[in-house]
Protein backbone atom coordinates (compact mmCIF):
# COMPACT_ATOMS: atom_id res chain seq x y z
CA UNK A 1 0.00 0.00 0.00
CA UNK A 2 1.18 3.49 -0.74
CA UNK A 3 1.71 4.91 2.76
CA UNK A 4 1.84 8.48 1.45
CA UNK A 5 -1.83 8.42 0.78
CA UNK A 6 -2.69 7.60 4.41
CA UNK A 7 -3.92 10.53 6.47
CA UNK A 8 -5.60 10.77 9.87
CA UNK A 9 -9.34 11.14 9.45
CA UNK A 10 -9.52 14.60 11.03
CA UNK A 11 -7.43 15.92 8.14
CA UNK A 12 -9.89 14.68 5.56
CA UNK A 13 -11.17 17.70 3.65
CA UNK A 14 -14.90 18.34 4.04
CA UNK A 15 -16.88 16.86 1.20
CA UNK A 16 -14.27 14.25 0.33
CA UNK A 17 -14.14 10.53 1.09
CA UNK A 18 -11.61 8.19 2.60
CA UNK A 19 -11.32 4.46 3.12
CA UNK A 20 -10.41 3.24 6.61
CA UNK A 21 -7.02 1.61 6.56
CA UNK A 22 -6.00 1.33 10.20
CA UNK A 23 -7.17 2.19 13.71
CA UNK A 24 -4.41 3.34 16.02
CA UNK A 25 -6.69 3.58 19.07
CA UNK A 26 -6.69 0.92 21.76
CA UNK A 27 -8.99 -0.40 24.42
CA UNK A 28 -12.46 1.00 24.79
CA UNK A 29 -12.04 3.69 22.14
CA UNK A 30 -11.04 1.07 19.60
CA UNK A 31 -14.04 -1.09 20.51
CA UNK A 32 -16.40 1.86 20.11
CA UNK A 33 -14.93 2.62 16.69
CA UNK A 34 -15.39 -0.97 15.61
CA UNK A 35 -18.99 -0.85 16.85
CA UNK A 36 -19.56 2.10 14.54
CA UNK A 37 -18.56 -0.20 11.70
CA UNK A 38 -15.16 1.41 11.20
CA UNK A 39 -13.36 -1.69 9.96
CA UNK A 40 -10.70 -1.75 7.27
CA UNK A 41 -12.11 -0.75 3.91
CA UNK A 42 -15.06 1.21 5.31
CA UNK A 43 -15.86 4.31 3.27
CA UNK A 44 -16.10 7.52 5.30
CA UNK A 45 -17.18 10.93 4.07
CA UNK A 46 -16.45 14.15 5.97
CA UNK A 47 -19.68 16.14 5.94
CA UNK A 48 -19.66 19.13 8.19
CA UNK A 49 -17.59 20.89 10.82
CA UNK A 50 -19.08 22.02 14.12
CA UNK A 51 -19.50 25.82 14.32
CA UNK A 52 -17.62 25.90 17.61
CA UNK A 53 -14.53 23.95 16.64
CA UNK A 54 -12.96 20.85 15.27
CA UNK A 55 -15.67 18.24 15.81
CA UNK A 56 -16.66 16.90 12.41
CA UNK A 57 -19.73 14.96 11.29
CA UNK A 58 -18.88 11.94 9.13
CA UNK A 59 -21.05 9.62 7.15
CA UNK A 60 -20.24 6.07 8.19
CA UNK A 61 -22.28 3.20 6.78
CA UNK A 62 -25.36 5.36 6.23
CA UNK A 63 -25.27 6.98 9.68
CA UNK A 64 -24.04 10.47 10.51
CA UNK A 65 -21.55 10.35 13.37
CA UNK A 66 -19.74 13.31 14.92
CA UNK A 67 -16.19 12.69 16.14
CA UNK A 68 -13.83 15.02 17.97
CA UNK A 69 -10.42 15.52 16.40
CA UNK A 70 -8.83 13.48 19.23
CA UNK A 71 -10.78 10.42 18.12
CA UNK A 72 -10.68 11.06 14.40
CA UNK A 73 -6.88 11.43 14.50
CA UNK A 74 -6.68 7.79 15.58
CA UNK A 75 -8.32 6.59 12.40
CA UNK A 76 -6.04 6.41 9.37
CA UNK A 77 -7.75 6.62 6.01
CA UNK A 78 -6.68 6.27 2.44
CA UNK A 79 -7.82 9.13 0.22
CA UNK A 80 -10.40 8.19 -2.37
Amino acid sequence: MDMDRLIPLHRLILGTCGKVSQLTANGNTRRRMLDLGLICGTRVEALQKSPSGDTVAYEIRGAVIALRSEEASQILVELL
Binding site: A25, N28, T29, R32, M33, L36, T55, A57, A63, V64, I65, A66, L67, R68, E70, E71
Partner: peptide, 11 residues
Protein backbone atom coordinates in the same frame (compact mmCIF):
# COMPACT_ATOMS: atom_id res chain seq x y z
CA UNK B 1 -9.49 14.49 30.37
CA UNK B 2 -12.56 14.00 28.22
CA UNK B 3 -13.14 10.40 27.24
CA UNK B 4 -13.77 9.39 23.69
CA UNK B 5 -17.25 9.48 22.33
CA UNK B 6 -19.18 9.49 19.12
CA UNK B 7 -22.31 11.53 18.73
CA UNK B 8 -24.88 10.30 16.28
CA UNK B 9 -26.83 12.91 14.35
CA UNK B 10 -29.97 10.92 13.56
CA UNK B 11 -32.06 11.49 10.45
Amino acid sequence: IPSSFALELPP
